[in-house]
Amino acid sequence: MIDYPHISPSGDSAVTIVFGNKIDDRSNGYVFALKRILESESSLSILSIIPSYSSLLVVYDINKHGQGEITDYIESKLSIVYKSSAKQVKKEIVEIPTVYGGEYGPDLDYVAEHVGLTRDEVIKIHSSVKYKVYMIGFSPGFPYLGGMEKKISCPRLQKPRLRIPQGSVGIAGDQTGVYPSESPGGWRLIGRTPKKLFNVNCEPPVTILPGSYVKFIPINSDEFNSMTEGSL
């Protein structure tokens, strides 16, 4: 057993700060609180900060800092982290217009049958929740969302698809997410969004920021097409 927070080396030029070993709002809040402090207050030479569900990786300039200097700084900020994350941070909500079912969500029928609900009930449940963006990973812009109702959970495909269209909205176990670009993947696809979630020419390149919230808004295929054209 280890105690949290657990500060560990990730080699000689990075440290990982672990706030817990579960997916929960509290640890994730600490992760983003520490990230904000490192970005806004520290004068350390930091190359990258990667937030995840319950831990944060800090990559620093090995030429400028030894590991002790970095861990000392982080330890000195932990009490502020625990206080500041308790404060309510403004919830930025990104709306994701989504066509559910049909060619856009070929697995919607399977999911509905699997959970014993109608298609409309699955859509209503999926689009009624504000999902927290715990982290981004797997591929550029891929958000790991928390908060899906267990009523619509559905296991992954036995055999992943080789090609999933950009914007596909899927379910895997208790999780839901969106594929920002075409890729292989094993999630059950229930819909698709015309919204571009990753653009290399934008700063930042992602539409959905880690630490923010998303809400899926049901639309029809005409709206999908007009939004796709509009974005060209």
């Binding site: 080699g11 030029s13 990982t16 995840s52 319950s54 990786l57 990973g137 797997f138 591929s139």
Partner: peptide, 30 residues
């Protein structure tokens, strides 16, 4: 299995088959 967390250059993962994977430049981020 751990709750997905960040990786870095040279991270040594031990997946279920017990054989190490050393992550290099093109690694995913978590």
């Amino acid at each position: 299995d751990i709750v997905s967390d960040p990786v870095t250059n040279g991270s040594i993962q031990i997946p279920g088959d017990g054989n190490p994977i050393v992550l290099l430049s093109d690694r995913q981020t978590t």
